[in-house]
Amino acid sequence: MPTVLFLRGWRFHFYSNEGTEPIHIHAQRGEAECKYWLNPEIYDIREAYAYNMSKRDTREVRKIILQNFDEIVEAWTNYFGE
């Protein structure tokens, strides 16, 4: 499971068997976990799921993803190909 970023206690990663899915990223910190779909064509993210996430956690994760959007997409593309 490749880790793309580790910021503010959040580990941003994807699973190595998910290459058939659209670009997305998982975030996990303690018992909190979420998954976001990324659309590089329109620079957009959409929540797939969130467990044990406060509103503050959600805002923080979304902000980190948006600030590192290009790096996440590049990591996905380098790992799985286009």
Rank of each mutant, 00 (worst) to 15 (best):
H13T: 06
L38V: 10
K55N: 14
P22Y: 11
S16E: 14
W37T: 02
K35D: 14
E74M: 13
F6Y: 11
Y79K: 09
E47D: 00
L66C: 07
E18Y: 12
I23C: 13
N39D: 11
T20P: 01
V73I: 12
Q67R: 15
T77Q: 07
A32Q: 06
E31V: 12
Y79H: 15
L5E: 07
L38W: 12
E21I: 02
D57M: 05
Y36T: 03
R46S: 15
H24P: 13
G9V: 12
A32H: 07
Y51F: 14
S54D: 07
T20R: 06
L66I: 07
S16C: 13
F6R: 09
G30T: 02
E33R: 07
E33T: 10
R59N: 09
E74P: 08
K35W: 04
V4T: 10
R29W: 14
R59A: 09
R46Q: 14
I45S: 08
E21F: 12
A75I: 02
Y51T: 01
K55P: 10
D70I: 02
E31S: 11
R8Y: 14
I72P: 12
A27C: 12
H26G: 00
Y43C: 09
N39T: 08
N68A: 00
V61M: 04
G9I: 12
G9S: 07
L38Y: 12
E71N: 10
V61A: 02
I65Y: 06
E21K: 14
R59I: 08
E33M: 05
P22S: 09
R46D: 12
Y51M: 05
Y49C: 10
E71Y: 04
C34K: 03
E82I: 02
T3Q: 06
W76K: 03
E31L: 11
A32S: 13
W37F: 10
L7G: 01
V73P: 06
W37G: 00
V73H: 00
P2S: 00
N78W: 07
V4A: 06
E71S: 10
Q67L: 14
V4Q: 05
G19F: 09
Y36M: 11
E18W: 15
D70C: 01
Y15V: 01
F80Y: 02
M1A: 15
Q67T: 01
